[in-house]
């Protein structure tokens, strides 16, 4: 089936083999005929995703999961999009994006640290907070400003909203006994930031992604948050960021 979706301000025509991607993208479908990119994946792309998933399971020591071809197609489509976008000042990053008003904060951490738990704490304790994307948002550069976009690719929970919010901070989450937040230098966090950013296969797109990350560091503050599982963690994080960014 063929349908158009809007992501990060661009219109993509998706030519899919299965319905799952259409259902997943339902909130992002547009009728515009001004298409910027056409994304068509084939069975070979789906099999490549199956192999990638198998290798990742091996690396992480997880049990084998037999993914459906329709699910793997959703991954193949997003991979194509992520490969294309750096040239247009857009990149994909792994993290949970929360917003309050017109300020968005991206929380990033290794798997298992507690991004989902911390996200829930914000929703329960920070008035007016909402999730833009719980797993794989897109970030677009406009001059010195960075805007974070919701996407349908939103992890197990599927938390996402079809909206865009100015990015005002990136928070590296760590577990701690107490709750504290402080500004960190980009060079300290760069290896982790790169590991959480989609790495295109094309060398030109890789270089462009690094240029975007360097620009991001120049214009968006980075924070480190040590937190436990108390609700105070969300309050201290929000107060710390608001206070230091003046939002």
């Amino acid at each position: 089936m063929t349908f158009n979706i809007s992501l990060a301000g661009f219109v993509f025509r998706i030519d899919s083999l299965y319905d799952e991607i259409y259902n997943m993208c339902s909130s992002y479908i547009v009728s515009s005929e001004d298409v910027d990119f056409t994304i068509k994946v084939c069975k070979e792309d789906i099999e490549k995703e199956r192999e990638r998933a198998r290798l990742q399971e091996e690396r992480e020591g997880r049990c084998h999961e037999d993914f459906s071809a329709s699910y793997l197609e959703t991954l193949a489509v997003y991979r194509r999009i992520a490969e294309t976008m750096p040239e247009h000042d857009v990149f994909l990053i792994h993290g949970s994006a929360l917003a309050v008003g017109d300020s968005c904060y991206l929380f990033t951490a290794p798997s298992g640290v507690g991004k989902t738990t911390h996200t829930k704490m914000w929703l329960e304790n920070i008035k007016g907070s909402f999730i833009v994307n719980g797993d794989k948002p897109l970030i677009r550069r406009f001059g010195d400003n960075f805007i974070l976009y919701g996407t349908p690719w939103a992890g197990k929970e599927g938390w996402n909203r079809n909206t865009s919010v100015p990015l005002k901070g990136i928070v590296f989450l760590n577990r701690g006994l107490e709750n504290r937040i402080w500004r960190v230098s980009a060079s300290d966090m760069l290896p982790f930031l790169i590991s959480q950013t989609y790495r295109p296969s094309d060398i030109k797109a890789q270089k462009k992604t690094l240029e975007l990350l360097q620009s991001l560091w120049s214009h968006v503050p980075f924070y480190k948050l040590e937190c436990n599982m108390d609700k105070e963690a969300a309050l201290i994080a929000y107060e710390g960021i608001s206070c230091q960014s003046g939002t």
Binding site: S187, L190, P191, R199, I203, L210
Partner: peptide, 23 residues
């Protein structure tokens, strides 16, 4: 390598294949 100037500190990031080798 792409050398990134992070405010006077330099980080060199290898590019070219699909694996991140550290900086």
């Amino acid at each position: 390598f792409v050398v990134m100037d992070m405010g006077g500190e330099y980080s060199a990031v290898p590019v070219g294949d699909d694996t991140f080798h550290g900086i």
